[in-house]
Design a protein around this nucleic acid. Structure first.
Lengths: 332, 332
DNA sequence: GGGCACCCTGTGACCGGTCACAGTCCAGTC
DNA sequence: GACTGGACTGTGACCGGTCACAGGGTGCCC
């Protein structure tokens, strides 16, 4: 085995066990029809040499790598990160592995990431496509493997694992309307995000259908700071605010407290995400829970189906309203 | 190129450009001494065929994959996740790529993850080792590649990228002492975590050196819920609390508010992490900032150094105290 | 005893790159 | 005109697995 420091190969194991390399391969791949003593000899040799199969060699000949490539955003948001993390765990349960790379929303960056993963012979790609520009980057590109979109929140395409953003926004607005609010304002996320667009659109539809007045829609950038800034620009007549995520809701509540206004006494606030802190913020935040875990599992199901040549039915994951103490009936 | 749906190979490109496969390889690897017309012909053929180099083949022959393997925790905490994310970006800047897998803290799980990554011919491994059991799992294992530990927060070993936990805890306690507090209590993280141990140990040292009385140390599990629970078990005489992370601090503050006690009026609270919400919680939280981004970059520096055969000097990353509105001088 | 099936194992080609080693061609020199 | 050297390109082995196929035994039947 004088092969540098590369570690033992299948041939080394074969030589030690006194069999052929092919027999070693068969043992490793659980082929039937190996005599028990032979199998034991091979396993023993593997143990003694500390042999580990080289997956590059395997991928080279099979053309498949049992690996899912993941393309994440450059910014470390807990939502996408925990979703990708869930993909990793679900993939492992399915006997697959994952490889992650990240890309900014530019077409060039997304294509680079695709190139890299395809070059690594991944069997499928899971792409966090929160922004429309990411989807557009794929136009005219043939990735040669199935591509699953994550967290678009949009149309229930068969190759996307997403949460139903419209339903979530509808829950939030209906909750406020149910409490008796009629002057409801919205702090949207950055509208380059499909999720932000969908929540805003559904906010508009829901308030319009209820015959409520249209208050100005403010646009934040998901951060607590932008929520704080939005707090200063609220419509004075608003009695409730639906924020497109929890972080902006926290910033907004802070701004309100600074201005001497209480939540929910003076103003009701609903968030979106149900982050770790939401259940113990002051006041605990009414919000919409997104099951990122489920998105991850769904993504792996889609990968498995596509690799097997199936075309699974479209299906959005339903969010859930969590009512806490930041919402109440209007005071007047 | 009738090779199934595997895509064109280097030989296909060579045939189309009318050169040998070796010339194609030279063009791809930027070897000097290629006639410009030849290079152009090759690049054109690559373009036309949509050729992408197969990295499995390359990894097989070179024995190196230009890839860093990362082992993360099973639980999606923002700290480790954003650190790993930072590793990914720093690696990309260094021309490397990453592959991620996760493991629970058991020895078997950590070893499986190592096996997998080594089998994938990674050039180095970055391991989130927040718990001592993870480090112990490595005892007696020869991974055959450099292993960099992440976020142990402990001893400044040359192969670890960590934040100086002792310094951070010292900042927090000194800040409270500086405000005049003498009865300071600590809500520790789960003590299976090295970070939690170090913060607690330093809390003890700092208070003992200042001659302060020893109040009971409560143990949480990092979650807001456990902070909330700790709120009910606080020493009635305490005037300040140092929480081992921000989430527990939020839970604690919520519990205090529920009991009618105000922060910082009745009690000062310091957190640890400086999460996204900390700057806009009620009140904005005094905390210790950890630069996860820097840890990620440092990890990649260490990888590059180790792969080059160097043994870089030990160096911990300094945390930073961020003073906000949750701390004040004791009221009495 | 020969033939045949079945069980188990071995042989060699091949995946798509890189590496080491040879060429081939042309200009410059004696 | 033959010789040398540099610039450029080609040839074949090899990395470590898997695949297709070809054996060598043994037991059973005719």
């Amino acid at each position: 085995m004088a092969n540098g420091n590369r570690g033992p190969s299948m041939h080394d194991v074969a030589a030690r066990a006194g069999v052929s390399h092919q027999t070693v391969s068969r043992v490793l791949n659980d082929f039937p029809g190996i005599r028990p003593e032979t199998r034991d000899k091979v396993l023993e040799a593997i143990e003694e040499l500390g042999y580990r199969r080289n997956l590059a060699a395997r991928a080279l000949v099979t053309g498949r790598s049992q690996t899912i490539g993941m393309i994440g955003p450059e910014i470390p948001d807990i939502g996408p990160l925990s979703t990708l993390h869930a993909v990793e765990r679900a993939a492992r349960d399915a006997g697959l592995h994952t490889m992650m790379t990240s890309a900014d929303p530019s077409a060039a960056s997304v294509r680079d990431a695709l190139e890299f993963l395809v070059g690594r012979s991944v069997d499928a790609i899971v792409l966090v496509a929160q922004q429309r520009s990411v989807l557009e980057a794929l136009a005219g590109v043939d990735p040669r493997v199935p591509v699953i979109h994550l967290l678009t929140g949009g149309e229930p395409a068969g190759s996307a694992a997403s949460i139903d953003q419209r339903a979530g926004a509808r829950f939030a607005v209906d909750h406020l309307i149910g409490l008796g609010h009629t002057r409801i304002q919205h702090v949207a996320g950055p509208l380059t995000y499909i999720e932000a667009q969908l929540r805003r659109d559904e906010f508009r539809s829901a308030t319009a259908e209820a015959g409520l007045p249209e208050l100005e829609i403010l646009e934040g950038d998901w951060t607590t700071d932008s929520g704080f800034a939005a707090g200063a620009r609220l419509d004075p007549s608003a009695t409730a605010v639906f924020c497109a995520n929890d972080d902006m809701a926290f910033g907004l509540i802070h701004a309100l407290a600074t201005a001497g206004r209480s939540v929910p006494g003076d103003l009701s606030v609903v968030g979106y995400d149900d982050t770790a802190t939401s259940r113990h913020s002051l006041p605990p935040l009414t919000t919409v829970r997104q099951d990122f875990e489920a998105v991850g599992r769904r993504a792996v199901e889609l990968v498995v189906a596509h690799v097997a040549g199936e075309s699974p039915a479209a299906q959005l994951i339903a969010p859930e309203l969590v009512v806490r103490a930041s919402t109440a009936a209007p005071s007047s």
